[in-house]
């Protein structure tokens, strides 16, 4: 029904699995370790094999098919191809072959593939975390991780609540955008032709109603939350208080070990 139907970047998939049952804090920390290590390991292609195996393992532990995890990166595919292309065409080095006036170099090919893969893994790790952690858990986890900084004035709870609501409204707003786009198309709008300026102008009749609706929704939601006795962090408890278990420590140590060994292998051994 949607122009945007494939845009499902890391939508939460409720299920019962080992990964689902982990404390969100361990998952958030794990994804941070992984992403850091992907960025640090940049000399050889070997660590990418390790990450690949790791993703296969994590997805099987989370009852989400490997295919679903991989297809979830589709929205950023263009970005990945773009990164690859930029490096491919604009790097100096030993020429491999030449298409018209563009020369393809060995260095360009290698960095292109690495940069593309890096971005791909980054999205993959982030997505698998979002797919196995409900937005509320995720924001509870982030709130808890950020809470030490509260004393320095960081609004951890507000930040986390904002994130919960933003994630909750993504599908709703995608539907809404789709509807408004179609309504304007029916009024003869031309949304996909002409230059950049013309296209942007054509989007105004889509963006203005969307903003109006967002503000209206925000206002109504605020009233509804107030009606349900919400008053910020004050006096609030949780149905599922975060609980750090043995599994979490094990999982996190395993991830830490794998990411560190990836970096060490890459930098000093291979």
């Amino acid at each position: 029904m949607h122009f945007l139907e494939h845009l499902s970047l890391g939508q939460y998939v409720p299920a019962k699995s080992f990964i689902h049952s982990l404390d969100p804090r361990s998952k958030v920390l794990a994804v941070m370790f992984l992403i850091t290590s992907v960025f640090l390991a940049n000399t050889t292609l070997w660590p990418y094999v390790i990450w690949f195996v790791l993703i296969v393992i994590i997805s099987s532990l989370s009852n989400i098919s490997f295919k679903t995890v991989v297809t979830s990166t589709r929205p950023v595919l263009i970005l990945i191809v773009f990164t690859l292309a930029i490096n491919l065409f604009f790097a100096d080095g030993r020429e491999l072959f030449r298409i018209a006036f563009i020369s393809i170099t060995e260095e360009g090919l290698l960095t292109g593939i690495k940069m593309g893969l890096r971005l791909f893994y980054l999205v993959l790790f982030a997505n698998i975390t979002m797919m196995t952690t409900s937005p509320i858990e995720l924001s509870d986890g982030i709130e808890s991780l950020l809470s030490p900084f509260k004393r320095y004035g960081l609004p951890a709870h507000e930040f986390a609540m904002m994130m919960t609501i933003a994630l909750r409204f993504i599908p709703t707003l995608l539907d809404e955008t789709d509807r408004i786009m179609k309504a304007q198309l029916a009024r003869g709008a031309d949304l996909d032709s002409g230059g950049i300026i013309k296209r942007f102008k054509a989007l105004i009749p889509v963006l203005v109603p969307l903003f109006v609706i967002v503000f209206q929704r925000a206002e109504e939601l605020a009233v509804a939350m107030e009606a349900r006795c919400y008053r910020g962090d004050y006096g609030r408890s949780r149905m599922r208080p975060l609980m750090w278990g043995v599994c979490d420590s094990l999982y996190l140590s395993a991830i830490l070990f794998i990411s560190a060994s990836g970096v060490i292998l890459d930098r000093w051994i291979l």
């Binding site: 509320i136 919960t164 994630l167 909750r168 939601l221 939350m225 349900r228 006795c229 609030r236 149905m239």
Partner: peptide
């Protein structure tokens, strides 16, 4: 407010 049914129902009592 929430993305999962039971979390939504829990929102009020949590407050």
């Amino acid at each position: 407010v929430a993305s999962v049914v039971e979390e939504e129902v829990a929102f009020g009592p949590e407050n």
